[in-house]
Simulated scan of single mutants.
Amino acid sequence: MSAFVNNPFVDPVEVNPFQDPAVTQVTSTGVDHVEEFNPFSDTNTGDLHDVTTIPATTTPSSQPAVLQPSVEPSPQATAAAAQANLLKQQEELEKKAAELDRKERELQSRGAATGKENNWPPLPKSFPIKPCFYQDFTEEIPLEYQKVSKMMYYLWMLECVTLFLNVLACLALFTVASSYGTDFGLSILWFILFTPCSFMCWYRPVYKAFKSDSSFNFFFFFFVFFIQVVVFIIQSVGIPKWGNSGWIAAVALIPTNIAVAVVMMVVAGLFTICAVLSVILLKMVHSKYRRTGASFQKAQQEFSQGVVTNRNFQNAAAGAASSAAQGAFQRN
């Protein structure tokens, strides 16, 4: 019995579990432990109250779709809208035409201020008809194209002289034989027709092409000048009753009148020289054209821009639009 320290029959002493040394050691230290975080403590309740809740969006009550009746514009309203649109386009065209007129007047005034007055044809100042064109190879044509341009001008002058001599040769032929009156009449017509037309249709286009590097003028020149080459060949051949003193007509007249035949041979030789020079110059212009970088696409663009900016075209378009609008309004 002496071995027992406590009496087993005595009431047991109440043992406080919080007096355990291990527990008191942990609670007495000021170090925070993550493992001891209490989610139910008052220190964390403030964060929970501060959280703002976002209420769920309430979907509005859907309404049944109501079909609106389709309202089609009346014919009068359509016609009025079309007329207003056409009148607006007409006003825009008139504004552009006025702007182009203003720019043209400015260019003319600048030309008058700088002294660039028309100098071709070179007519006396007392002559009632004034020059129509301005031409200056050294000023307007680049140096590499001046030679070709002058040769084209000389070719045109040679053609004019040849056509005039052709009139005289046909007149001499008519004096020898009255049956050649048709040739004399046609020779006068060819002189009156070909002299200005050749200047306007192939010389001025090639001049402006070299001046401004215009693809459209180049293509227009090639088209017309090819026809001119064919005409030179026909004139040099001299088909009877065609108004040309060519080789056939001159050789046929040798047994009858040698003097008139010689005159006609001279004219036939001049027509032949014109034909040969025209072929040579056509090749020269084509070689220069290939160096300028011109193309068919550029020619189309220049043509379309020239048509749109043309005042006559704008006036015609405006008149057509106005008449169409008035007609549509009257029908409705």
Rank of each mutant, 00 (worst) to 15 (best):
F199P: 09
Q135N: 05
D183F: 00
D42W: 11
A112L: 09
E99D: 09
A249T: 14
L163V: 00
A56H: 12
F127N: 15
E36R: 14
F271G: 06
F216P: 01
E91P: 00
Q63W: 08
G243N: 05
Y203N: 04
A79T: 02
V176E: 03
G243W: 00
A169N: 01
Q305G: 08
F303R: 08
I141S: 08
N6A: 13
M1K: 06
P122M: 09
K95S: 15
Q25V: 04
C197A: 14
P122R: 11
V237K: 02
F210R: 00
E99K: 05
T27R: 10
G246Q: 04
F40T: 13
V308W: 11
A113W: 03
A79I: 07
G327T: 15
V308R: 08
L282Y: 14
G306W: 00
R311K: 12
T29Q: 14
A97T: 09
F127P: 14
G246E: 01
V237D: 00
M264T: 04
V15F: 07
V15Q: 13
P12V: 07
S41D: 15
A81R: 11
G319K: 05
M200Y: 06
W242A: 06
T272K: 09
K283N: 05
Q326N: 09
I254A: 09
Q228V: 11
T27S: 09
P124F: 09
V26A: 03
A299N: 05
V26C: 03
K88I: 04
D47R: 13
